[in-house]
Design a binder for these strands. Structure first.
Lengths: 209, 209
DNA sequence: AGAAAAATTGTCCAATTGGTCAAAAAACTC
DNA sequence: GAGTTTTTTGACCAATTGGACAATTTTTCT
């Protein structure tokens, strides 16, 4: 979907590109596109700077490759929402999937957050086309469920915004969260899931005003 | 609270420092601390680079001054939550205050978001002391309200996290929101407030399981 | 093994960056 | 309005940065 990707690449090429991307993800997530330097990526990857530039012709190319390689994965849980399942269970499952990603892939979350926060120079196009299209479809499903009285009357778009916001918050703002709550990661995410489940159950319940 | 601030400053000094801070806020919010350059701040402020350095001895000092000048303002709505008011109204009011800040001060929101996202190098201390202390107090109020059966059983910390996340999302991720929703700003925030009101009312309602 | 191709690196460069400084200009004081 | 202080600026500098390149080393292929 994103790019033709690793077509005719040798073993070494695949390995080294993967090494570089992994290191670059760390550095970009921590410092952002502009704050990240090739030197930092070189150190993080254990390669030399010219060697990195042998595989990627520029810093921007690395950034673009890392980001676009993650895009599909990032939107994937949205596709799992099935129009045929139980509405509440489908949406709770989506929330849990997003929360799990925040727990297990905080760097990826931060990378996207920084990208969007700073004007989404590389992804604005994808957001306005691919993501919008998918979300429009899912909101249509939500609205169908609502018309069938299976869900409370909620604004589908803002429902998704709030799920994104609440789940990604635990990755993007983890420093703030951890400054306030002194818990193990497992306990924190257990409490978060419990709270978010409660919020969603109450918000989506077809009964009540 | 933050610093002694403008003590013995001449008219010109106050004006220029204010001009610099305003321009720096724009640039820092858009590019982050590391992505912002003195040249960009110089252009945005209409001053020359050495002139800026006449008022602030370094870029970091500007950043620190801008950020710490905003800290109090940013936490202020939290102090408005009164233990004596109606619990639901107090918390709805807090949410509305935060949402209004997202609408009217998106740059400030983005500045904080970037700061925390990238490790909160300058604010971690404040987060772990001042903010934590205030939040602990407010969560104690929440818990009192819960024990008085005025609120549903919710985790107070995660309640605040979710309010922060959901309201700030409209400032920090506005590009994503606007890529998906093609509305006027007023309509967007009207819908957001309606949705968030509904979520909070249902989440906080003492009745229901 | 030996030739060809691929991978790696040391060295270098130009542009950008944060910051300095001395001199000029403006503002204030009496 | 002369003298003093404050403000402003042009010119400059050292460090960092993204990137180029030729030479060397390693891998691959026969």
């Amino acid at each position: 979907m994103t790019l033709a990707a690793n077509k005719n690449l040798s073993r070494i090429q695949k390995e080294k590109r993967s090494t570089i991307k992994k290191a670059a993800l760390e550095v970009f997530a921590e410092y952002g596109l502009r704050g990240a330097t090739l030197d930092k990526i070189a150190i993080a990857s254990g390669l030399t700077k010219p060697n990195i530039l042998y595989y990627y012709s520029s810093k921007d190319k690395i950034y673009f490759d890392v980001l676009s390689g993650l895009l599909d994965e990032w939107v994937a849980p949205l596709h799992e929402i099935s129009p045929n399942g139980d509405p509440i269970e489908e949406l709770l499952g989506y929330m849990r999937a997003k929360l799990t990603m925040s727990k297990q892939k905080p760097q990826e979350s931060k990378l996207f957050a920084t990208e969007i926060l700073h004007g989404a120079p590389l992804t604005q196009n994808v957001l306005a086309t691919s993501l919008k299209k998918t979300l429009d479809e899912k909101v249509a499903v939500i609205n169908k469920w609502i018309s069938e009285k299976k869900l409370a009357h909620v604004n589908g778009y803002h429902l998704f915004f709030s799920i994104w916001a609440m789940t990604q918050h635990y990755a993007d703002f983890d420093i703030q969260v951890r400054s306030i709550l002194d818990q193990s990661e497992d306990d924190l995410f257990k409490d978060a899931e419990e709270y978010l489940t409660s919020v969603l159950l109450r918000t989506l319940d077809a009964k009540a005003p």
